[in-house]
């Protein structure tokens, strides 16, 4: 079942002589439950693509549909609420709210929606990610890997349609990077979550089911199915 569709997505920054075409017409389809890695060199447009997929920025033209809904037909406030309910984010720099504890960061999207967190579900996520003894700690008391795990937990807690991860291992050492990617994959499988990871690291990308290459604002002609997908 298709969960995300991108149609002729374009994004241009600036005007006239200083205009930069970050995306030149991207087309993409993602199935529910897929774990996709989008790889590209620096400046290829992969982060721009992720921002568009998550509704963090608006394109110059084109559409992004999540669960059948064209997200750019929504007004800013509606888009924010849509993002809160349907999309989970994991960033390179973790982006945790420094004044909230680990638990409060994890349940933030749920509480912003005015709902009560499903205790059992949240506890499962916390336990699976190995954060049980860090519930009351604050982000500045955690290591990089722990902070990224909290970010993953936050992304999962609201049971979104899609999780978007922008260079989630960018600020981590190799060992921790492997751990984090492994956790993402496990959590994706366990909760039937669709995950899209942006990375420039080919090795990291190998953990995904499918690798999509982006160059100069366009998807490369060939998609690469990883060995996991081939052997599924």
């Amino acid at each position: 079942m298709e969960i995300l569709r991108v149609t002729d997505l374009k994004k241009t920054y600036g005007t006239g002589d200083t205009a930069v075409e970050a995306l030149k017409g991207v087309n993409l389809s993602v199935e529910k439950g897929e774990f996709i890695a989008i790889v590209g060199t620096s400046g290829s447009g992969k982060s721009t693509l992720l921002h568009m997929l998550g509704g963090l920025d608006r394109p110059t033209s084109g559409t992004v549909s999540i669960d059948g809904k064209d997200i750019f037909t929504l007004k800013d406030e509606e888009l924010t609420i849509f993002r809160r309910r349907k999309i989970g984010f994991v960033f390179q720099s973790f982006n945790l709210v420094p004044v909230l504890s680990v638990y409060e960061n994890i349940v933030l999207p749920i509480e912003l929606d005015g709902n009560t967190p499903d205790k059992e579900f949240v506890d499962t996520i916390i336990d699976t990610l190995g954060l049980s003894d860090k519930r009351d700690s604050y982000p500045n008391q955690l290591s990089g890997g722990q902070q990224q795990r909290v970010a993953i937990a936050r992304a999962l807690s609201s049971a979104p349609q899609v999780i978007l991860a922008d260079e989630p291992t960018g600020n981590l050492d190799s060992k921790t990077s492997q751990d984090v990617m492994g956790l993402l994959k496990v959590m994706g499988e366990r909760f039937a979550q669709t995950i899209i990871v942006i990375t420039h690291n080919e090795e990291i990308a190998q953990t995904a089911d499918r690798i999509i290459r982006i160059e100069d604002g366009l998807i490369a002609n060939k998609e690469v199915l990883t060995w996991q997908k081939k052997n599924a």
């Binding site: 004044v99 929606d113 709902n115």
Partner: peptide, 24 residues
């Protein structure tokens, strides 16, 4: 519960607003 969480209406979120403001 998950369905309700996704599709539920906007309800009282004063508690988290107050919490973020106070902690900030």
């Amino acid at each position: 519960a998950k369905e309700k969480r996704i599709n539920g209406p906007m309800v009282n979120n004063k508690k988290v607003i107050r919490s973020i403001a106070a902690k900030t």
